[in-house]
Design a protein around this nucleic acid. Structure first.
Lengths: 251, 251
DNA sequence: ATTTATAATGTTGTCTGACAAATCCAGCGA
DNA sequence: TCGCTGGATTTGTCAGACAACATTATAAAT
């Protein structure tokens, strides 16, 4: 191995991580702009005086962090929309843990509903109403309508026109899917529950349609409060395991 | 290269990603428990019929996702608290973008204040009040007190006793630091602003101390509303760049 | 026999070199 | 001008080796 040519990575920790930090810094500071191609792996190895393996490992970190994308035969490029990773603990399947998630959900969806009432475009409002119709349809066919339910809430998040909300909501929806399903498979309560849910949804959508921020926020808050109550009625032993759909990317 | 021995990774996309998915699935389903050591890189390469490079790349993904940790000479282990990465777009330094973040912040902190009023322990309440005192102290010395301000809000998030809130708040605080600083370096308005801020903080802390959920939520909402207003008063050209402290991990 | 030093083995981190697969580009021909 | 072809580039994967560190087994000493 040759001596370092540029900034010698401070000795101590992982070699690849030191290089990764330098590159992320360059991206964060805008030294490398979105879409720009970064030097070839060979060139980076030469510059830092390290082997290609280490360069690849460093770039792999950036890729997993969403800062760059690589195309075989072409090169690695700074991502168009650089992201940072927020790491959250995977909720265990306990009722307590699900309720903690519901609290987060309440925080976000109340405010999302408020913003949606304020900023929704006509087409976004249409999508919200379509989602409601989809739920009705699913219920009539005898399905649980959980996917449609989540689509409804996602449509509201989209109507907030703030990507942060959709990102976080998408995140926890994965873990809530099973919990919601459980409350809908409770045979004895299912009908009354669904009637409640649909009524609550209607209230949210109406408020958003009328552009009444406060009413939308309150309706969303009520819906989430009741959701927690409905969850508590469900037999806790059904919450044993959060299913792993396997369709999502590992990173 | 030898033929695949176990589940042949479905051909098509990145080889390393396919392996990463299988491993994440094993962890998510609990097939591999936290703390457990996973097979050596050589063994995994043998099992899937791939080279060690690919195995390393796959494990690198899991590492970056917070699912495993590796120790040289020892092995790779399933993380004690497995996490999933939520990727959020890095906000650009525009006023518009900062305000989108403030909206997220408002959603979380209003609810965090509500939960804190409901569940704060005595020691958590003490920490909130200490943070307030720290702000006073910093201001008297002539510092901007931004760090102390963020510590105050973090103390409230902690008092909510819901780790999701602290995680998300920690995340966006990094990007808000600069913006808040800007509003405090506005010489002409600084004194009146700080007086407002301190008064609003006091209202939140009092409501939390008294266990008044609704008052806490409203006080927090007002504070964040006013924060947005104060930000809008700041000269926009100061928002040019979000500083990169370089102290945070690249991933 | 227990404890301490030492050797042997195992595992991840890094280096080196090679080939495969995909992309890019320049030049050629119609 | 346009499309095609061939070579040059570049990332993905393979293979084997050594270094750094950790763990375990062995030997030594008290």
């Amino acid at each position: 191995m040759i001596t370092n040519h540029e900034t010698p990575p401070t000795r101590g920790i992982q070699l690849s991580e030191q290089v990764a930090r330098q590159l992320t810094h360059a991206i964060h500071t805008g030294e490398m702009r979105p879409g720009e191609r970064l030097p070839t792996e060979a060139a980076l190895g030469e510059r830092y005086g390290i082997s290609r393996s280490v360069v690849r490992e460093a770039i792999s970190m950036l890729r997993n962090a969403g800062l760059v994308t690589s195309r075989r035969g072409s090169g690695s490029f700074v991502a168009e929309v650089p992201t940072v990773a927020l790491r959250l603990a995977i909720p265990d399947p306990s009722l307590q843990s699900i309720i903690r998630l519901l609290e987060l959900r309440r925080a976000l969806e109340v405010e999302a509903a408020r913003l949606a009432a304020q900023r929704r475009t006509p087409s976004q409002l249409r999508r919200i109403r379509n989602a409601m119709a989809d739920i009705d349809e699913a219920v009539e066919v005898g399905a649980d309508g959980v996917d449609q339910d989540m689509a409804f809430h996602r449509a509201i998040a989209e109507a907030s026109n703030n990507t942060h909300f959709t990102a976080v909501i998408d995140f926890y929806n994965r873990f809530l899917h099973h919990a919601i399903t459980v409350t809908r498979t409770n045979e004895s309560l299912r009908e009354t529950f669904m009637a409640q849910v649909i009524e609550e949804h209607q209230a949210i959508a109406d408020a958003i349609a009328q552009g009444d921020e406060e009413a939308a926020a309150q309706a969303a808050g009520r819906h989430l409060e009741h959701a927690e109550w409905r969850l508590r009625q469900a037999p806790t032993d059904l919450l044993e395991r959060i299913e792993d759909t396997g369709t999502d990317t590992p990173i």
